[in-house]
């Protein structure tokens, strides 16, 4: 119980920290979040290095809009087209959510490529971040898989025929190609089960894998740290013991302050 001599501000602080302490004592989660938020990153990180977070945001937009669209979409060949029309034309803000999902897919893929390019050009796939790079490539492949499986769902001419060609492309793989084609199609030609399969893969299988891999990806980023831009004069890892320059405020996001200042 707060003694009556505490100021209102102190009482407010106590009121906020009490539930956090309760949670921390029973789970340790508050400490984890604090570690994530207040961990040190190199002082010279660049705007290009925000592409990873941007990709994550795009994916979260996709996940959210996708789950909500699933409340109105009907995954059978008889109803899919009509449900899409319904969503686009009749339901309040349906056009917006559907549009966000459809264009969010393009933005997500562009950002993945840009993020991959940035990591490559910064050499941030080298020791000790090789595993993270591999996870990232797998995420790219899965993102493209989401695009492919999701494309069939509106069940219009574009969707159907692009999927026919896509499945047949898979079928040209030697030995197991025809089996892969028939497995994806759910039969000898595209039918009702094809749509159900693609829906299940698009909604459950690949997103589950993506969530897991993103979790691993972020864990590794926190554990291994973020690299400095390679051109930076004060790159972390170069071990320079000179005081960082405080006049060059344009070398990156953050200009490291001289160690003399109170911190």
């Amino acid at each position: 119980m707060a003694p009556r001599s505490q100021t209102p501000k102190q009482q407010l602080q106590a009121a906020i920290t009490y539930p956090l302490d309760w949670l921390e004592e029973r789970s340790g989660i508050v400490g984890g979040v604090k570690y994530f938020l207040f961990r040190k990153v190199p002082g010279d990180v660049n705007w290009f290095q925000t592409l990873g977070a941007a990709t994550l945001t795009a994916f979260l937009v996709q996940a959210l809009t996708g789950v909500i669209l699933a409340m109105y979409y009907k995954p059978t060949t008889g109803d899919a087209y009509n449900s899409i029309q319904h969503i686009t034309n009749d339901i309040w803000a349906g056009w917006l959510v559907r549009g966000m999902h459809r264009w969010g897919a393009s933005v997500f893929i562009i950002l993945m490529f840009m993020h991959m390019g940035r990591v490559f050009l910064f050499g941030a796939y080298k020791y000790p971040r090789e595993l993270n790079w591999i996870i990232g490539v797998l995420l790219l492949a899965m993102g493209l898989g989401e695009g492919f499986t999701g494309y069939l769902l509106p069940w219009d001419q574009t969707a159907y025929w692009a999927t026919v060609v896509g499945i047949n492309i898979n079928g040209t793989a030697p030995f197991l190609g025809p089996f892969l084609s028939q497995f994806l199609q759910g039969g000898t030609y595209i039918n009702d089960t094809t749509l159900s399969r693609f829906y299940s893969i698009h909604m459950l299988m690949i997103p589950g894998a993506i969530f897991a891999l993103i979790g691993l990806h972020l864990y590794l980023v926190v554990r291994l740290g973020v690299t400095s831009p390679p051109w930076s004069k004060e790159a972390a890892g170069t071990g320079s013991t000179e005081p960082p320059s405080s006049t060059d405020g344009r070398s990156g996001l953050v200009s490291p302050t001289p160690r003399r200042s109170a911190d």
Binding site: L37, R39, K40, V41, P42, T50, V61, E234, A236, L253
Partner: peptide, 26 residues
């Protein structure tokens, strides 16, 4: 060691710029 000595906390410095970029994306 360099990051520990001369780094800045992720929040609010880097995270702020992440947030701006996310806003652009959305």
């Amino acid at each position: 060691a360099d990051v520990k000595e001369r780094g800045k906390p992720f929040y609010p410095y880097a995270m702020f710029h992440d947030t701006i970029m996310s806003l652009v994306v959305v």
